[in-house]
């Protein structure tokens, strides 16, 4: 019997925050299983963060990554030099989102594609700002740019539509794409506590950031909608095209009035194909009937995809968390070789 050697896939991780470390952990945890199931041998040959990069062509150990992160070991080179000069196949870009100018993530992705490497990213900024340009660059280089983790965390939506629903026309997508807002609205309704109180609780539990404005003002949801509008509906829109309202004005009385009439209030992002079918690209609190599949609680994310053949498809999943986001990154990595 012929035994085939697994294909070596060398990876670098740029950005060692929660998601980046989560990716390193799931690759370590799942390595054997992935080799057995998919015939690919994943090896992390470099990691980079603010101070620079550390590399090892034989694969970095957990210990080496931890030491680099804590600043105990000196860096070998700059991030961009690592992306350009270290031989590897995939750059995993997990630096924080910057929707103003794309931040360093934009440069990382461009450099990686120009160095003929595939890119898998959770970073929303570069995609929201330069989607068309980045996809064109990837195509011209014959490389893949994948970004499932950028929308809905572990909840599959991009590949669900592109792969499983291939052949369907997608009419619209609407859903809850921000777990922090969902948590706050859920707790306000359940515990009858005012917004400020629940926000503080969410911050103490690490569900809301110290500066929660990106989430509660609806900006995070808006950026994800832009990614969906451009990648699923081929629209050429940017953040400023989104009509955005957040949840900061929601009162307990409004939640009670909604409840009495059989509704809950959720922060809903909605996007459609534009053109004659409408021009919807908006984030706003909406009334959701209690028996609607979009009524999910806590930090969960949900999306209903309206299609021309399959009807309505609704997916629910964990929108945030390092391992959950890493799950989406990992499936993108494997997807490149399937």
């Amino acid at each position: 019997m012929e035994t085939k050697l697994p294909k070596l896939v060398r990876i670098s991780i740029v950005g060692l925050g929660n998601v980046g470390r989560g990716v390193a952990e799931v690759i370590r945890r799942k390595q054997e299983e992935i080799t057995r199931k998919y015939g690919i041998d994943l090896k992390i040959v470099g990691v980079a963060d603010l101070p620079g990069a550390v590399v090892d062509e034989n694969g970095l150990s957990e210990d080496a990554i931890t030491k680099f992160k804590s600043g105990e070991t000196a860096e070998d080179m700059t991030t961009l030099d690592m992306i350009k000069d270290v031989e590897h196949e995939i750059v995993v870009e997990t630096t924080p989102t910057n929707v103003e100018n794309g931040g360093p993530g934009l440069t990382h992705i461009i450099t990686a594609l120009e160095s003929d490497r595939h890119v898998v990213t959770s970073n929303k900024g570069p995609l929201a700002l330069q989607y068309g340009k980045l996809m064109d660059l990837a195509t011209s280089r014959g490389k893949e740019l994948k970004f499932e983790a950028s929308v809905g965390g572990a909840m599959p939506i991009i590949s669900l539509i592109k792969d499983n629903l291939a052949g369907n026309g997608i009419i619209s997508i609407k859903g809850i794409l921000n777990g922090t807002c969902n948590y706050i609205l859920t707790r306000m309704r359940e515990e009858k506590l005012p917004y400020e109180h629940v926000l503080k609780e969410a911050q103490e539990r690490g569900i809301a950031e110290t500066d929660p404005s990106n989430d509660v003002a609806g900006r995070d949801t808006a950026v994800k909608l832009v990614i969906l509008a451009n990648s699923i509906f081929d629209r050429n829109v940017s953040y400023k095209d989104v009509e955005v309202a957040g949840i900061t004005e929601i009162t307990l009385e409004a939640l009670k009035l909604a409840d009495d009439a059989g509704y809950v209030i959720k922060l809903i992002g909605e996007v459609d194909g534009g053109g004659s079918s409408g021009e919807c690209l908006k984030v706003a609190p909406r009334l959701v009937p209690k028996d609607d599949p979009l009524n999910v609680e806590g930090t969960l994310n949900v999306a209903t995809i309206k299609t021309d053949l399959a009807g309505d498809i609704t997916v629910i999943g964990k929108g945030a968390g390092p391992i959950e986001a890493a799950s989406a990154v990992l499936s993108d990595i494997i997807g490149i070789y399937m």
């Binding site: 004005e249 009162t251 009385e253 009670k256 009035l257 009495d260």
Partner: peptide
Amino acid sequence: LSLSMPGVDKKSSAS
């Protein structure tokens, strides 16, 4: 129309 008015300076909510 249902109106809920928690206080004079506060915002009201209505269905």
